[in-house]
Nucleic acid binder design. Structure first.
Length: 607
RNA sequence: GCGGCUGUAGCUCAGCGGAUAGAGCAUCGGUCUUCGGAACCGAGUGUCGGGGGUUCAAAUCCCUCCAGCCGCACCA
């Protein structure tokens, strides 16, 4: 029944954050170039050199630790491999480890290497970060071209919470890839083609162009679609007109195309409003909808035919990739041409793969699409590989995500059982943030307050979506996500605003180039270690295509800051110490701001 | 039936082969004449869905069972 392609599905579950251990990853992609090496990379280099001498190819398994700052867990497996006692191997490793200038090493337990970083080394790293706008993250040495398919709303249909997930996750990944030094090509695969357009265009004709445009331009897309659908189901004459209209559309009839363009233009203008409200980077030129591939479809089928892959089945032309069976155990088809000779979305998706690899030169294809599309995409990849359009050198990932659930833990629906409009949720979040701001004494103007409320609301909604592991479903709970305490976007913004406020109150100038880091207290040291872990968190988050890892890191950093903030006065202490603490604040503020920006979240200076 | 995802504290969730499983919320108790209290500190609770297996080491990998959600050709 639902007809327009629903790429971004609704539904899924979720999760939390914690202390620094979660940051560490084995085999992180190296930060290849840049003005400085990240703390993790420096440590890993030294350890790898020592491990290499004893067991070539072994992994030190470097992780954050609560026993030291870091721990290397690789000794035990190396010992096993060599058939020697682990402690003995650890001794030998430590003996050959050139690391005294950066850390102290202690062998513990069965053979763990606990590493405690020297203050002098931390100072070096902090000074580097202080003057590095990239906060220690290097640009990729080998930039790749990444095509990210995300958002994908449908023409003449409302954007709902499922589109929220695709849009927010896709946008965060796009920002992260760009920051990493890669070239991102965003592809907003808008549903602007297909049999539904017969009915939509006829409905437009019935309403009259002006009335239809008025209806669409106020964002009343759902009722437009619903009314068209109702007529289609109830009225055989209308149904017949719709079918005829589809044929005209596909035949390129100018008048039909003109009417179609009205629907597309009005919808695209509406999408642009939603994107602006969400503050996502998607631009009009990123919209490359299904219709774009229309002219390539016949060619796709021809290519498949020439490759000898086509099979006729029930009058339709299909490809049967190996390994996919239906509920009767029979092979499952990818139908590339229907029995009425029309094309379906599979053909469009194949054309898109071909276009993105062949014409755009993509090194990597990402599909930020709901989890239920998984099998479909797998089959598309399989056929594309069979056809030679998708070489092994091109990485393809389905960046799947779970559903957004309502309070009842079922698919998020309004009281009347309809899908929930995305703009409605955003507006409600803005209202709540605005009301909360209004209760605090502030000298903000109405306009300033509304702007701030919008920033907070976006942070609340986006962070709630991003901070959970993608594949899980999560419950959309506005109260929880907009709370200013706990693991929320507004909490992170607040931490940042407090930091900025310190600098506003700073009366005398301070010289960042002449700061000495003593890190005398635990809170200062913990904060320093926190900021220095940013490159790891970023690399891990990007490599796994899991923005929630960056969220977990930022929340941990914010907590380290507030602990520091309680324990360590900044402005009221004398210069050497004051400047050190100011520097820590400066680095922390910039790291929070940068990290949030990579998630598509703004960090206002005051709130 | 086949395939996919999920199952960790009262609730929402981190934990991606390592040492005593961690956060937030909620609860209880503290701090504070606030560099912005939208804060901080402390306390408690766990058959990591069950059962096998691999491993020096398993919430984590493999198998199996249970529960929930989702997908499986002419809609996209």
């Amino acid at each position: 029944m639902s007809s327009v392609r629903e790429r971004s599905c609704l539904h899924s579950a979720s999760s939390a954050r914690t202390s620094s251990q979660v940051i560490s990853r084995p085999n992180l992609p190296r930060c290849e170039t840049g003005t400085m090496d990240s703390t993790y990379d420096v440590l890993l280099d030294r350890l790898q050199a020592a491990f290499e001498r004893i067991a070539p190819g072994s992994d030190p398994v470097l992780r954050h630790s609560d026993r030291g700052d870091y721990q290397a867990n690789g000794v035990m497996s190396v010992a096993k491999q060599l058939g020697r006692p682990p402690r003995e191997v650890a001794q030998e490793l430590v003996h050959g480890l050139e690391i005294a200038d950066i850390a102290e090493v202690e062998i513990a337990g069965p053979g763990f290497l606990n590493l405690t970083l020297n203050t002098a080394f931390l100072e070096d790293q902090l000074r580097n970060v202080l003057k590095d706008p990239r906060m220690g993250v290097a640009n990729a040495a080998h930039p790749k071209k990444i095509v990210i398919d995300y958002s994908a709303p449908n023409v003449a249909k409302e954007m709902h919470v499922g589109h929220l997930r695709s849009t927010v996750i896709g946008d965060a990944l796009a920002r992260m890839y760009r920051f990493g030094g890669h070239q991102v090509i965003a592809r907003n695969h808008v549903g602007d083609w297909g049999t539904n357009f017969g009915m939509l265009i006829e409905h437009l004709v019935d309403l009259g162009e002006q009335a239809a445009m008025a209806s669409l331009s106020i964002g009343d897309l759902d009722s437009f679609y619903r009314d068209a659908r109702a007529k289609f189901d109830a009225d055989d004459t209308f149904k017949e007109r719709s079918r005829t209209r589809v044929v005209s559309l596909q035949a390129g009839d100018p008048e039909t195309r003109r009417l179609w363009a009205i629907l597309v233009d009005e919808s695209v203008a509406y999408f642009a409003e939603v994107y602006a409200k969400l503050d996502v980077t998607l631009a009009p030129e990123d919209i490359v909808g299904e219709s774009y591939y229309n002219d390539m479809l016949a060619d796709v089928v021809t290519d498949l035919d020439e490759a000898g892959l086509l099979v006729e089945s029930g009058g339709a032309l299909c490809v049967f990739p190996a390994g996919f069976t239906n509920r009767d155990g029979e092979p499952m088809p990818v139908m590339v041409q229907k029995s009425d000779e029309g094309y379906g979305y599979s053909t469009t998706d194949l054309a898109a793969v071909r276009d993105r690899v062949r014409n755009l030169g993509a090194d990597e294809l990402l599909y930020v699409v709901g989890a239920p599309q998984g099998q479909h995409l797998e089959m598309i990849y399989a056929v594309a590989r069979m056809a030679g359009w998708l070489p092994d050198s091109v990485r393809v990932e389905h960046v799947a995500f779970g559903n957004v659930l309502g309070p009842d833990r079922k698919m998020f629906k309004s009281r009347s059982g309809e899908t929930v409009k995305l703009v409605g949720l955003l507006d409600e979040a803005i209202e709540r943030a605005d009301a909360a701001l209004a209760t605090r004494q502030s000298n903000l103007s109405e306009a300033e307050r509304h702007h701030l409320a919008t920033q907070i609301a976006r942070a609340a909604v986006k962070y709630a979506d991003l901070s959970t592991e993608r594949q899980r479903d999560y419950v959309f709970d506005l109260d929880r996500m907009i709370a200013f305490e706990g693991d929320t976007g507004p909490y992170l913004q607040y931490a940042h605003a407090r930091l900025r406020s310190i600098f506003r109150r700073l009366e005398a100038a301070w010289d960042p180039s002449d700061v000495h880091f003593v890190l005398a207290s635990g809170a200062e040291r913990d904060l320093a270690l926190g900021v220095l872990a940013f490159p790891e968190a970023f690399a891990s988050s990007l490599a796994s295509l899991q923005p929630h890892r960056l969220c977990v890191y930022l929340f941990d950093l914010a907590q380290r800051f507030t602990t520091f903030y309680e324990a360590c006065p900044v402005l009221s202490v004398a210069p050497p110490l004051r400047d050190e603490r100011l520097a820590l604040c400066e680095i922390t503020a910039r790291t929070l701001s940068l990290g949030l920006s990579l998630l598509g979240i703004e960090a206002p200076d005051r709130m």
